[in-house]
Design a protein around this nucleic acid. Sequence first.
DNA 1: AATTGTAAGCGCTTACAATT
DNA 2: AATTGTAAGCGCTTACAATT
Lengths: 339, 339
Amino acid sequence: MKTTIADIAKLAGVSKATVSRVVNDRPEGVGPGTRARVKAVIEEAGYSVCGVARGLATGKSRSVGLIIPDIANPFFPQLVRGIQEALRPRGYGLFLCDSDRDIGKEKEHVRVLLEKHVDGVILSSTISDCDCQLDLLDERSVPYVLLDRIIEARAEGAGVYVDNRRGALMAAEYLLSGGSRRLLFLNGPADLSLAKLRALGVQDAFRERGADPASILCLNGDYSVESGESAVDAVLEAAGGKPTFDAVFAGNDMMAIGAMRAIRRRGIRIPQDVEVVGFDDVEPARLVEPPLTTVAQPAFMMGRKSAELLLCLMDGKKPRKRTVVMEPALVVRATTRFR
Amino acid sequence: MKTTIADIAKLAGVSKATVSRVVNDRPEGVGPGTRARVKAVIEEAGYSVCGVARGLATGKSRSVGLIIPDIANPFFPQLVRGIQEALRPRGYGLFLCDSDRDIGKEKEHVRVLLEKHVDGVILSSTISDCDCQLDLLDERSVPYVLLDRIIEARAEGAGVYVDNRRGALMAAEYLLSGGSRRLLFLNGPADLSLAKLRALGVQDAFRERGADPASILCLNGDYSVESGESAVDAVLEAAGGKPTFDAVFAGNDMMAIGAMRAIRRRGIRIPQDVEVVGFDDVEPARLVEPPLTTVAQPAFMMGRKSAELLLCLMDGKKPRKRTVVMEPALVVRATTRFR
DNA sequence: AATTGTAAGCGCTTACAATT
DNA sequence: AATTGTAAGCGCTTACAATT
């Protein structure tokens, strides 16, 4: 049977209030002798506080929810690791919710998290033009921070992102600098804000170089290897197997890897005939042949920052910056030619 | 401000008990007219039950904890997906805990989960010869199921595993059948029960073929690409760059991929000079060059099964089988020669 | 018998009072 | 002023009683 604070109180010969004070390490309000005695009894009895009773009394559950589109995409586990790193020392639990790229499930997850009375939510939303799930959070004034995926109606809200426009610009510029001109831009879903920003970044690079942005062949995938592979395959098929492009820039590494497969299957050489650049720098990027040149995101740091920001919000403090934008970095490997 | 069951009761002109009954869909005990009226009021007010108050009243939190060694290892996200699939329809929340391959953190996570009053725990432990974390669970009679990682002292307890011995046997047998005789067995950590079972499986295969199990060169890695790469590199270095083995069987795909890198860097050909077989069949396995032959684990199914088993235990029912062992399957790709 | 309400209780926290 | 205790309250569920 479980021990409660009342049992400890009786065993130590003090009131429940006193036990509560030592359990919560309140510096004021308990004499040193009493504190030691109560601590000994707690240790002895193997008592640990009941979080749900405490939660009901304080209105805080010491848990947060994380909603992501797809835990199988290796970018997200890094986010999770960063979040855990920030949360663990504070004793917060993390509810993981995979929305499976389905906005309906995402909303459902928000509802469940609300029932669980999480103190805050970190959201990497599956689409950028819907904020109804955030309305639910606002109604209950549950703080949240957006992570990786901007939601356009809340762009000014708390969030942690990479500078997507700049990351895409870096990739496109690098490709242009190597002489590539006919770009196949394999972007993510068109309605995603980060995809739009990256499209702008690619156009920036073209304009800077005096190249025509209208010449960019832009396709959309869903961030899976298959979507990248089939999109590029369709383009090659339509052109009779000859590449109508000399460079591919993909919205993530998995699609880039898919593109590489479609390209190499046709006997087209990477990087001699076609250069390829990805985005994210997940582990598979450096394992494929040839190793993938990509725009790295500091995923672990982004996760950690988002949790720190949320912690700050949950403490009722004003963060110095509500929106933090992190720097991408081009990692040159072997799917691009030597410059 | 938040609406409570008392607010709804007042608005609908009924007692809290009645509201509670309709919220929980108790078939008996509420007249159809009342039920409809209360439902309308709930809808109108946007009320949702407070899980923590309910949890205190019922002693159930409708949440479970999952502890895994490393979410960045692509095998585990599949487990997570399977678990979520089983949990979501029942409205259970999932606390994700990454032990970071550290038994100390693992124990700490159990303590935190106990404070959160989870109704059950799924544990993929980082070592096999310690069950002190399970003692904590037993003391509070919190049901748990072991997943993927057996803990030897509780081998008879609820658990979901793949048939590791048989999986290893299949891999070794396939290598022997192709004529490979000098095996480098790149196993996982030696104290892991599943690693011991796989070692037995490899020996079984050798004995069946009349080969000498003592001839197996066995090394241990930590399931990372780096550990596989450096282990094989050290062996090659010691032998002056010439392979002293004609086949590698690795304890997971990531180590197999590391081994491939070390091998190819020396100009040794796969599969002509050395065959390689992995374990797990995670996504990177089919993306590397050449695509990796591997022993597939039904990770998604294993996750789902473990959650179903836990659900069963939490409902206080006796599961038909406390231990479920799933079948591995050899997936032949291109790191082994054509048979 | 079906419907509805009363009231206690789940295990904590914390404002306030009482004691030293 | 520092230490300790009293008692109410957090928002539910549910056994039991009361009503129709």
